[in-house]
Design a protein around this nucleic acid. Structure first.
Lengths: 139, 139
DNA sequence: GTATGATAGTCAGTATTACTGACTATATTG
DNA sequence: CAATATAGTCAGTAATACTGACTATCATAC
C-alpha cells in the first residue's frame, strides 16, 4: 500500500470524527464547507484567498460560503479598503462552531499521538511538514 | 496546522501527479474512478467489495465502474460461482493503465523518500501503518 | 484625468461524485 | 420449500466542482 493512500485513510477517519462530532453538537456542516471555514482568518478573509487555500475555484468557494452563511455561521461584510471585495468572517455562532471543531481535531490528534507514542508522533509531524515543503513550496 | 490537513496536502499532490501523468499517457481517468480501479484484484472483483474498500456506496461504485467500462478500461463478466454477481476486471488496456499508474505512484513516493531521507521516510510509513490499525482496524 | 488591464465576485450551465430508497434476481439457511 | 440475506440496478436528489461570461472596482500608465 502506498503512503498516499495510507494518508487518505487517516485523513478520512479524522474527517468523519469531526463531522459527526459537529452534527452531535448541532452544527450541520459538510466536509467541503468545513474545509473552507477552517481557513477563515481572525479579521475575515476574502473569497479568492479561501478558494486558493482550499484548492477550489472561487465559484465553488462561493457556493460553500453561501451555504455557511445560510446556516448563520459566517457573514459577508464589505471590505473597507477595497470596494470590489467582501470579507467573510465568522458570526458568534460560527466562532463557537470553529472552536468546537478545533477541539475535536486536537482531541483526535491526541488519540493518535497516544497510539503512536511520542517519538513516532513527532516523526510523523516532521515528515509531513517536510513533505509539505516539497509539494506545496510557495505557501 | 493539524497532521490530518498535512496528510491531505500530500495526498492531493500525489493525486494531481498521477492524474496528470495518466492524462499525458492518454488515459482520461478521474480521481474517484482511479480510486475504484486501484482496488480491482488480479482475477476480478465484485462491485460490493470495491465499494466497501473505496468507502462509497455500491450505487456510487456502479457509476464509477460504468465510466471505466465506457472508456474500455474494465469489463464486467458474470461470476461463474454466483449468478447474482459479476466480476469487474481490467481489460488489456486497463491493465496497462493500472501498471502505468502504479509506476507513477512509485516514482512520486521515491521522490518523497529522497526528500525525507531514509530514516524519516521509514518512520512516516511506520506511523501511517500504525495509524491505520487504529482508525481502520478490521481491514 | 482617463484609457487599459488586473482583480473580486457573481451568474449560468454542466459534469462528477455521492447519497437514500425501492426494486429484481439469485443464494443460503433452516 | 419458506424466509432471509446478498449482488446489483434504477430513480431521484444533493453536494461538490468545473468552465465561461459577466459586472464592478482598483491600479497603473499615459
Amino acid at each position: 500500500m502506498d503512503v498516499a493512500t495510507l494518508m487518505l485513510i487517516a485523513y478520512r477517519a479524522m474527517d468523519e470524527r469531526v463531522i459527526s462530532a459537529m452534527r452531535e453538537a448541532g452544527y450541520d456542516v459538510t466536509v467541503a464547507q468545513a474545509r473552507i471555514a477552517q481557513r477563515i482568518g481572525e479579521s475575515g478573509s476574502r473569497l479568492v484567498d479561501l478558494a486558493e487555500q482550499a484548492q477550489v475555484t472561487k465559484q465553488t468557494a462561493s457556493v460553500l460560503v453561501a451555504a455557511l452563511e445560510q446556516k448563520g455561521l459566517v457573514e459577508r461584510v464589505p471590505d473597507p479598503v477595497d470596494g470590489r471585495a467582501r470579507l467573510i468572517r465568522f458570526t458568534e455562532r460560527g466562532e463557537a462552531a470553529a472552536a468546537h471543531a478545533r477541539e475535536v481535531v486536537m482531541g483526535v490528534e491526541q488519540e493518535w499521538n497516544e497510539h503512536l507514542g511520542p517519538r513516532l508522533a513527532a516523526d510523523l509531524r516532521e515528515a509531513l511538514t517536510s513533505l509539505r515543503e516539497l509539494v506545496d513550496p510557495y505557501r
